[in-house]
Simulated assay, not measured.
Amino acid sequence: MGEGVNPARALGIDIGGTTIKIGRVGADGTLTETRTVPTPRDPHALADVVAAEVDRTPEPVIGVVNPGIIDERTGVVTFAANLGWRDLPLQAILERRLGRRVLLGHDVRAGALAESLWGAGAAGDMLFMPLGTGIASALVIDGVVRGTGWSGEVGQVLVPDPGRPGARIQFEQIASASALAARYAAITGSADVSAGARGVLERLSAGDTAAADVVRTAIEVLADLLADAAGLLGPTPVVLGGGLAEAGDAVLEPLRAALAQRLPAELRPPLRAAVLGSWAGCLGAGALALELRQERR
């Protein structure tokens, strides 16, 4: 590969708490040869799995993304609660095992990059917020994802607890996909959360009042957070993914109404649903490896 010539494809690897998503990513956003494998919690066992996947789908460049607090400048996972990692030099571990360069990034910031290139944010700037098992966000300005480390960790913001007047609770314990299921189970006295957020949204569409209460509370808290963000960023478009966003207008319309109660018309951000789904992180990992964010500059 000659100097200054970007490769046309990369291998994207998205490490999740339970599974790893792998796929071949084209510079045009195509995604092929996708598969998932279980995630080992031991980082060296993880490196062996990544090496096997690289052997299976050889590509000149490799992008790996991970949840938690990631410092992309040093390649260190500062903290990843669902994997039990702290101050882990993951990039160095992978590069030693593979004997080649690896681009390491944050899964949500990578997802934002993919949505900005090929998805709902392709028209310009955006605030990307997938409401998954946890909640983080990423800001895209002029086609470049901004921030590193703790930036975008909105799920950790303490908000009023709807069940305990005067108390506060992490935002992701109200509006994340896992929180929707847990809160619905608590209200109905059930121990079954296997249907997740999707189950709550299905009950919402069927007229279940407990599901309506859980979703309404999440929307109200989310609207407060987005209104604060609009006050800082202006009416930057908001792209919502996962969890609540899967319900489409059933959630987006009441969220728009809630924002109208909090913001003047000129400051209200356009709301969109993400379009790349659960593979946004894998696509973004490939985009990182292809250094498409530099091209957008």
Rank of each mutant, 00 (worst) to 15 (best):
V159G: 08
L104Y: 12
A80V: 08
A52F: 10
A51G: 13
A81L: 03
L139C: 02
V145G: 02
L83A: 03
V154Y: 05
D48M: 04
R56F: 13
E115G: 04
L46C: 10
G75C: 09
L117N: 03
N66K: 04
F79V: 02
I93G: 14
L139I: 03
A81I: 04
R146M: 01
L117I: 06
T74Q: 06
R164L: 02
D87W: 09
A120K: 04
V54S: 12
P130Q: 05
V77N: 04
V65Q: 08
S137T: 12
G84N: 08
L94F: 13
G147F: 06
G84A: 08
P60V: 13
A136H: 04
G143V: 05
G68C: 09
P165Y: 10
R73S: 12
G121S: 06
V76D: 14
P165F: 12
W85K: 03
A81F: 01
V77H: 07
F79H: 09
G152C: 05
N82W: 04
D48E: 15
L139R: 08
I141G: 01
G132Q: 08
A112R: 07
G84F: 03
V157G: 01
V64G: 08
A110E: 11
I169D: 05
L113H: 06
R73E: 00
G134A: 15
D87H: 15
L113E: 03
A51I: 05
L94G: 02
V77W: 07
A92R: 10
T78R: 15
E172I: 00
V157P: 00
R146G: 00
F171R: 10
E172A: 00
A51V: 03
A114P: 11
V159K: 13
R101N: 00
F79I: 02
T133Q: 09
R86A: 08
A136S: 15
A52I: 07
A110D: 10
L88M: 09
P162Y: 11
R96A: 14
L98D: 11
P160A: 15
G155R: 01
R101C: 00
V159N: 11
T133H: 10
P162E: 14
G121V: 03
P60S: 15
A80Y: 05
L90Q: 03
L131F: 09
L139W: 10
V154F: 11
R100Q: 15
V50Y: 12
G105D: 14
R146A: 01
A80S: 15
T57N: 09
S151H: 13
R146L: 01
W85S: 06
P130I: 04
T74A: 06
R100K: 13
H106S: 12
